[in-house]
Amino acid sequence: MQHGKYRFIAGFLALPLVIYAVFVISPFVQAFQISTTEWSGLRGAAKSIGLDNYDKLLHSDEFWNALKHNVIMLVLVPIATLALGLFFAFMLNVGGRSRRGAVITGVRGAGFYKFVYFFPQVISITIISVIWFNIYNPDPHDGMLNSLLGAVGLDSLQSSWLGEKDIALACIMVVMVWANVGFYVVLFSAAMASIPRDIYEASLLDGANRLHTFFRITLPLLWDTVQTGWVYMGIIAMDAFALVQIMSVNMGGPDGATDVVPLRLYQTAFRDSQFGYAAAMGVAMLVVTLLFAVLTMRFARRERIEF
């Protein structure tokens, strides 16, 4: 019996573990090793150069420029996405007019809204990029956004969007927010639904209004979810690869204004064949991601409220 048990365990774990070890764990370990070499990808031609790649990285304006954009995204995109997500979720769940005897006063058609908002989550980032590439078409008559602005008389706001150095990055961030708000609306709606109504009822008896209930009840009780959501969103903000690659002018342009670390890494490796240097960028990404997660967990920590 015992023997059979261990044979069963080994049999069930062997294949998943092997595949996982070969394609995930071993690359993870190798990344550190490759980052200490100078390597054009030729078999056996890697030259060990210690930490030189990291030194180069620290002194590379290109890298800092890209990292700066990722950090800007890391700060702004989660704030905007989570704020909108919370706002819409609260509206969907609480924004409705009250009706006779029913405590439940969600907005009419809440399910429909969630269905629409969530849509960008299920389609490929490639498609999202192509759509927004058209929305941002710089032509004042042909561009979707520009022609819309023209039609309502806001010609002065027309712009070449992704071609404009000052706002190109913001344009990319808008797409990230656009694509991810729905995820948080659904997530926060589910979390809000699990808050017991007596808490609301009690607070209402005490004369609280909606604003109060949101900041004094909903938000504190959702804090755990918000925190996890923040980390999730931060990881997405560290990426932005497909959006920048497909949408931006000259990949990362104009003039490096939308460059991000993943794009730098991709081009350093697969266009310039500097694999050691690119691997160092990868390790740097790991460090930034972990730092972000730890900081978020640390600063956002609140006493957990059981309900």
């Binding site: 006779r100 439940i104 969600g106 709606s189 209402l204 209930t213």
Partner: peptide, 24 residues
């Protein structure tokens, strides 16, 4: 108090929507 009472869950809004004007 009834009017301001917030909701807890969203989706099930359908039929109960009638006759609320008077209380809004």
């Amino acid at each position: 108090a009834v009017d301001r009472r917030p909701a807890v869950s969203g989706p099930s809004t359908g039929g109960a929507a009638r006759g609320r004007k008077s209380r809004k």
